[in-house]
Structure formats: C-alpha cells, structure tokens
Design a protein around this nucleic acid. Sequence first.
DNA 1: AGATGGCACTCAGCCCTGGAGAGTGCTAAA
DNA 2: TTTAGCACTCTCCAGGGCTGAGTGCCATCT
Lengths: 346, 346
Amino acid sequence: MSEERRLEVLRAIVEDYVTTREPVGSRMLTERHRLGVSPATIRNDMAALEDAGYIAQPHTSAGRVPTDAGYRVFVDRLAEVRPLNVPQKRAIETFLSEAIDLDDVLTRAGRLIAQLTGQVAVVQYPSLRRSGLRHLELVPVADSRILVVVITDTGRVEQRYCELPVRPDGTDAGTDLDEGTLGELRARFNAAAAGKRLADLTGVFAGVVESVGPRLSGVAQAVADLVVETLGEENEERIVLAGTANLARSGATFEQGLSPVLEALEEQVVLLGLLTEMATDGVGVRIGHENRLDGLTETSVVASGYGSDGDTVASLGSIGPTRMDYPGTIASVRAVARYLSRVLPN
Amino acid sequence: MSEERRLEVLRAIVEDYVTTREPVGSRMLTERHRLGVSPATIRNDMAALEDAGYIAQPHTSAGRVPTDAGYRVFVDRLAEVRPLNVPQKRAIETFLSEAIDLDDVLTRAGRLIAQLTGQVAVVQYPSLRRSGLRHLELVPVADSRILVVVITDTGRVEQRYCELPVRPDGTDAGTDLDEGTLGELRARFNAAAAGKRLADLTGVFAGVVESVGPRLSGVAQAVADLVVETLGEENEERIVLAGTANLARSGATFEQGLSPVLEALEEQVVLLGLLTEMATDGVGVRIGHENRLDGLTETSVVASGYGSDGDTVASLGSIGPTRMDYPGTIASVRAVARYLSRVLPN
DNA sequence: AGATGGCACTCAGCCCTGGAGAGTGCTAAA
DNA sequence: TTTAGCACTCTCCAGGGCTGAGTGCCATCT
C-alpha cells in the first residue's frame, strides 16, 4: 500500500469535492482520475486515510469528505501553485491603477479579490507606525472640542476630535480660542514637527507645549497627545470588506447557517486580530477550526501581508468555505498583494 | 359592513403577521383582538380587503398576508407613532457622544440603527456641497502625481490623487516640483481660498493659477480643478452599512433567497440614489416593489434625512423585510437622525 | 504482500399515501 | 348586517417501500 498513492488519492478527493461539492466515492474517483487501480484498492487507501484523520464520511455509506487536517495536508504538500493568466493580471493592474485615492485603492483591491475568488475579501488599512508627519491642521468645531487632522508623508489622512481640557479656573479652554490663536498654535506645531517620525515627535511636541505659554499649554498638550496616539500602534483599526454577497450566492452551506459567519465578519476588531496574526511574508492559510473565532470554524482564511518597500504594513485576504479552491485563492490573494505593494505610495 | 372595522381588521392582520410571521386566519384574529364580531364576519371583511388588494392568501385555505399596498395603508393611516423609551434615548445619546471623529460618529449611528431595528442600517456621508474650504494640503507622491487633501470647515477631510499634466515639451510637470515649489503653491492656494465657499472658489482659483507663472500654471490648474470637483455635488458617494448579519439571523426568508438583497446592498451607488431620492424632511418609507431596485423588491426601506442646521445634508435609514415593525423602525430611525443632527459639527 | 472481484449491508433521498388541521366560501337563518 | 353551519380545499407531516450509491470484508489472484 504505497504512501504516494495514498496521498494521490487524498489530492483527488479534495479536488473532486471542491468542484462537485458532493462526498466522493471510490468508483467516481477511479473514473475521473487515472489512478491505475480498482475501486476496491482505493477503498483500502481511503480507510487508511480515514484512520489518519484526513477524511471522514458524513454518514455510513456516503462518500468521503476531506477534514480540516486533510485540507491542511493538501495545502502544505499537494497543491501546486497555479499562477494567474495574463488577462487576469492585466485586469488587476488596470483596475488598481485607476484608483483616485487611498480609500479607493483599498476598496478596489477588495472588490478584485472578491471577484477573483468568488468569496469574501478583507483588506486592512496600512499601519501608521512608520509614517512621518507632514502636516497638522486644527479646526474649531465647538467650544470644547476641535478637529485635529493629521496628514502623513505616505499620503494617509487621519482625523480625530480633540476634547479640550477644562482650565483650573473652570472656564472652557476653548472659549477664547479664536481663529488667530488657533492659527498660531497650528503654525508652531507644523514648523516644529514637519517631517518628523513618530519616535521623535514626543520630544518635539514637548518643546512646542513649553513655548506656547501657560494659557495655551493645556490645549497644546491635548493636541500633542492625540497626535501621538493617532500615529501610535494601536490604530490599525480600519478594514474594508467586499463580496459579502458571494457567501450567500455561492450556495456555500454552513452547518450553523451563515449568520455566525456574517456576524464574525462584522466584528472588525476580531478580524483585524486574525489578519495581523497571520501577517507573515508570503501567503498564510488558516483552515476551519484553526481559526479560533467562533463564526469562522467552517471557513478558511487565505491572507497575505503587503507593503511598499518589502516590509509588511498591513494584510489582506479572502475568506470562504473550507471547501474552497485553495490554489486559485492563494494565487489571487498573492497577486493582488503584490500589485498593491507596487502601486502604494512610497 | 363598516369601513372602520375593515381597516381595524387590516391593522390587526398586519400586527399579527409581523409578530407571528404566519398567515393569519379569521379565528386567530377574533381570539387575539377584541373586535366584537365572529370569525364569519371577519371573513367577509377579509374578502373585501382582498378585493381591494390589501391582503392576499399564499394558497387556498391559508390565512391572509398583507400585500405591499396593505402595508402602505397601514403605514399611512393606521400606524401610531411609538416614541422610544427613555433608556433607549439615553443609549443613543451616550453612544453617539463617545465617537472620536466623523467616521466614528457615522459608524456608530449605523450600529445603533442596526441594533435598535434588528435590521440592516445605511448611513450616508454628509454632502460637501455647502462646505467652505478650510485648508488645502499638497503631498508629493510620485513624479507624476501628488496627493491633494481638502479640509472643509465642517470638519470633513477628503483626499484625492492628482495626476499632473505633461508639459508641452514632454517633460513631466512633477519632475522639478521640489518641496519648496510645492510649498509655495500650497501657501498661495491657502491664502487665497481659506474660508471661501464652493461657489466662489472657481474665480479665486483662476487668480491663483494666473499668479503662479507659466511654469506652475499647469499644475495649479490641475489642482484647482480637482478641488472644485471634490467639493462638487457628484461626490456624496460614501455610505456606511451595518447589521448585515441581521438579515440572515432574523430568519427573514426571501422568495429569491437573500443573495439578491446582499448584492443590492453592495451596490453602494444605487443605494445612494435610493437614499437621496427619499431624502425629504421627516421619515420616508418605501415598501416592497415601491423600490425599483431589483434586489430590494421584498424589502422595505425606512429613511430620514439629517443635517445640522435644519437643512438636510444626507440621509440614513434601515432596510428590512416588508414584514417589519414599521412603527418601531420609524421611531428608531427618526431618533437617531435627530440626535445625529444635534451632535454633528456646525 | 498487495491488488482485485464479489457480495452483503447500510443508509439518505424520493415518491406515494393517508390522515389531521387550518382556513375558506357559501348559504340560510337570526 | 351578522352569525352559525357545513362542505371543500390545501398544506403539512409521518409512515412505508423502493432505489442507488457507497462501504467493509473476505476469498482469490498475481
């Protein structure tokens, strides 16, 4: 009972099951693949594979279905990478290059992956950690709050409301913040901080806060804190989803129904955790229960990091039923990640 | 056969059907509502209501189900507004006031509506049309493109890539755009345009383009065009979705399955059209086929405009099966719209 | 020892049937 | 105009029998 043939049988089972969505039996297998042996032999191999935990039967006298472990072996040892064809590559390139801003690039990347894989796409916004500060803008909004807009040199724009501290004497710090004063504050900040990286900012800002005098120092400090926090590492919090409808359309049927899946997808924080956890160089695959997340135990996640100059600033990926076309999905995710890395500013 | 009782029967049918999700028959009706007449009488009324097109039977000898027209009558003439209770109002207020920026406010508003109604929430980003320009920032990204960031006085931030025109002599306009030159351009734009409204900008910008000299005028013109376009009316294009999972969870079952619905929800452009179309003062309701959109013929949309100083700058709403709790949904949507209007800057 | 053919067994899926239950429409009477 | 009664219709469900796909095991062949 040769080891290679057994793996060959496993591959055949996975491939057939992915395309037909039906448990696959020994006869079908011999008919559709040139394995060179009879159904009875296959049955013996299947029994061994079942003992090893790679396949299972939904019920007695049904065909076999790959288990999570089976898919894992398939992905790690059996799947051949299948590069995209030229028209597909073209499509990616032109579609991404038509984007008008960062939001648009990421949205398009999401749609692209969703369309290529026929599954749900997830795209994480690039981290701000490595960015430098380009410009700071302060906009009065109400007496007690101003809007702080941070523009980084990677072209990312972040905005935050800043609650102004109350002065010791009880008056709102913002009440006498007229255009002029705010303008001066803005000018000082910009003069001091332009081009600086996050690591240096704290020191630079301290200087600014000192220089503005006691009347404004509270406000200045609040703004400085907010900017540092914004550029800090906790803030990689936005993601783009696309292709949710594919879940329902594909007829993918989940034991629990698809509401737990949809719920998991709405938990952006958790999704983010998953993505960052998987962000290595190259494409990573999480199969079924390998995702600890409750709603995603019947799905697989194929994710890849991306980033301009080789180092990963964020991740993107595709989520679908464990019974998915792994080689195709991996190829698509990788291709989009690469093009995205090339297109991104810096 | 009194007209009032007939309407009363219609109301009872709608209410029962919404709660039980089962076709409602004459006996049930007499048992659960104090109508003071026998089932037989109800049957006569029901026959009349059916002739009028307000109710229908899924099959002979099943109970009756309201039609789109029936819901319409219910909403227009029979539904009593049911204001939210105090804890709910509190929840809205505190949850919205915790938001850290505009994105966050709208995301939270979406979640709120989704949770209150148990349906899908849609929130449109405020229009830029009435905003004034507060600041313009130019960031070099590549030789042939720069990033233009527009900050409005309502606290909205928009970013766009700007493709630089090629000079007559064939050289890229961006090649010699160093920091200094770009800084000068930026300063000129800001000095001239700060505080101006869209209507006045075209003229102001023309002056700037003139003043920068022939070497930069191409670039300046490109930037000016882009800004005007960005603030122009075609650009109210973003929306937030929330609660998609509710669709599946609610067990709402659609004839066509829910993929057409999910697809419709992904068509942001179309959704936007729907929302703006419905944006009047007060809450508007579109029932079933009243939405022309293919995927939404089995759903109803409850939407309301919102905006700071009384005039509507955008809309938000809730989408669910035609068999929804209209009074509750209307109350929730209206409440969130009002609080949002109050909280929004300006 | 490994591969094969044969055979008995299991079980989901399908169709058919009959009965129960819910609800209607109609008619005649109050 | 309302009501009671009655016949009729139709869905839903459970039971029963059949079919087909697939397995596991055993004896046999190479």
